[in-house]
Design a protein around this nucleic acid. Structure first.
Lengths: 341, 341
DNA sequence: CGTCTGTTCGTTATCGTACACGGAAATAAT
DNA sequence: ATTATTTCCGTGTACGATAACGAACAGACG
């Protein structure tokens, strides 16, 4: 193992000088800088993180910008759980996390919360963002100072200077749902898509992927229902059943499959939805939901913090994109997906 | 953060004494021991792993007992990859891994390799084992000294004193395969199980799970083919097709689905197999294999080492069992499962 | 030539833990 | 009582990196 002492000896300077060069703290001549840098390169010196974090008294602080935990049927407590997991694991490295929870159904809350985070910009060494309201996010993102790296989870603002994006290929997940739907629907008929949350990046792409899969086939008729906000789901289902005498399946490209499935007690319907919330889980177990797509939210949160840690503390290069697998959950395997990382 | 210095002060002794008590190195009186232990408990002292691993010059060595990487269509290089991942991540903690690769089709090799590992028992601080030949493993396991913790991946020898088991519920995965088969077979007919490797824990349990699912239904006829070792698979398939005029699906409860699918170019057959090897991957993409079950072999290896690390270095308590989710892979999502941890 | 300022660098204490060394007290042996 | 032997405990150094402190030396200026 190469230490700064080795470097100091070979470069004929003291460890203090080596340290100054490494951290660009000035107070050295060009000549010694070159000498030191040359030796560092030759020996392929990598600083010892352990020694570094032992001596350094300064805490590393990461900001986390997430929807409130209870929103979307408690979905958002899952990424938060993964983040807390990472926080605990990194406690020893003096990593602290400051949480900023916003209301994902309120632009005002989003803005206010983001600004509150920006007030702390002088103490933050990195930021994790779930940019659920994408139009707003792409504005606000620009206000983050250049020197603070930020990662996205869940969704991504492509034309921004993000460090890394951790999330699922949403369109593919839609196509996968379509495959499963097609497999489950043995007799041709109508398939209904219930679009509860509109104007959402994920929802729209899932539908896009779903439709693209069915475009090639032509056996089934696909209808999209887009109920107004806050309207009774029972009525939607009733309407759907009335308007489609041969309804075969329901695709719910959001976390609300459980709510829908509670209304359709008819077992002959194939219901496909997203995310392992407690409600969804129990309805998969009863058979009311046939398939759930899982996006490993805990892992997304965990990896988000780990990516920041690798970049900021370990100074490693990180992947620009981490693809989250598209898990298929059914009655038979759902139990095995619980309590993962 | 509580340090031994704090404890020393409160207990009115020196840090040297505290250290001796903590490590039970003797040379202290009963009275001081009690004082020190009391303070440790009161302050809930947790040693600083960072400082500890910085000062300690001793390497921690883990033994890894795995089938040769190239066996089972290169399947076994996947857990090894996960292990190497963990090794790299833990390099800084002076963790070293010694690999012992055996031929999983030779009892002699298994024994010899295990004994070779046991020769190193004085330097090993933990062992990771894939006990593929279970009868032999359950004998050999007893020779591991009491003080060396060992974890299982892939499969488990239940009546042994293992620290942790990381693996999949094999029977459930069989039932899941059956569900998928049942879903894919739209017209009743025969379903063939091809049991290439016999006398294997996984294979038998997968078949058990598969059969149990179909027992309730009665639409399809299930036949098990058990070709002799080294026999041409093409012939097996030919025979199966000849003997079952209405063959609908093939279940391959091993890694060899790809080999089988190469022989059956008929698209009307549903083929379900196991594991994301390169061969299997390409055949899923062509559509020759309909479903693959993934058991996250890289993750198993990674978690195996991490579990040993947590126990031996961090002295944390670890889970006795880590369930690996049963991933369903299809043409639509297989790409997203590649290059995972 | 003396004083001053600024640049450049070496020395040293520190983080929390481990462990060797040696000293003081207490007990045993003579 | 004196010496020898335990028992018990404090001190010091090391691990590798950081950063404060101050020394050495140069050139500038009167």
């Amino acid at each position: 193992m190469v230490t700064i002492k080795n470097i100091a000896e070979l470069a004929n300077v003291s460890i203090g000088t080596v340290d100054r060069v490494i951290h660009n703290r000035g107070e050295f001549s060009l000549k010694t800088e070159e000498k030191v840098r040359k030796v560092i390169k030759e020996l392929n010196y990598k600083p010892n993180v352990i020694a570094r974090s032992l001596v350094s008294k300064k805490e590393v602080k990461f900001g986390v910008f997430l929807p409130k935990s209870k929103q979307d049927e408690n979905y958002w407590k899952l990424p938060a759980a993964g983040i807390k997991n990472a926080e605990k694991e990194l406690e020893i490295y003096k990593i602290k996390i400051i949480y900023f929870y916003y209301d994902k159904y309120s632009k005002t809350s989003f803005k206010k919360c983001f600004n509150k985070m920006l007030e702390k910009k002088d103490v933050l060494d990195g930021i994790l963002i779930a940019p659920v309201i994408s139009e707003l996010a792409s504005e606000m993102i620009n206000k983050i100072p250049e020197n603070i790296p930020f990662v996205f989870i869940d969704s991504c603002i492509q034309n921004s200077n993000f460090l890394s994006y951790i999330g699922q290929n949403t369109q593919k997940s839609g196509a996968l749902s379509a495959k499963l739907m097609n497999l489950s629907v043995k007799v041709p008929g109508s398939i209904v898509i219930i679009k509860i949350i509109s104007n959402d990046y994920h929802i729209n792409n899932r539908i896009k992927g779903f439709l693209s899969y069915f475009k090639k086939l032509k056996d089934n008729k696909i209808i999209i229902y887009e109920p107004e906000k806050g309207k009774d789901l029972n009525n939607i289902i009733k309407t759907a059943l009335k308007e489609n005498k041969n309804l075969r399946g329901i695709f719910v490209p959001s976390v609300y499959a459980g709510r829908i499935a509670e209304c359709t007690k008819k077992k002959s319907l194939c219901v496909i939805g997203y995310d392992l919330t407690t409600k969804n889980e129990s309805l998969v177990k009863t058979g009311a939901i046939d398939f759930l797509i899982n996006q490993r939210p805990e892992l997304q949160g965990y990896l988000g913090i780990m990516t920041l840690f690798k970049k900021v503390v370990l100074k490693e290069t990180v992947k620009k994109e981490i693809r989250i697998p598209i898990d298929i959950l059914t009655k038979e395997n759902i139990e095995e997906y619980k309590d993962q990382i």
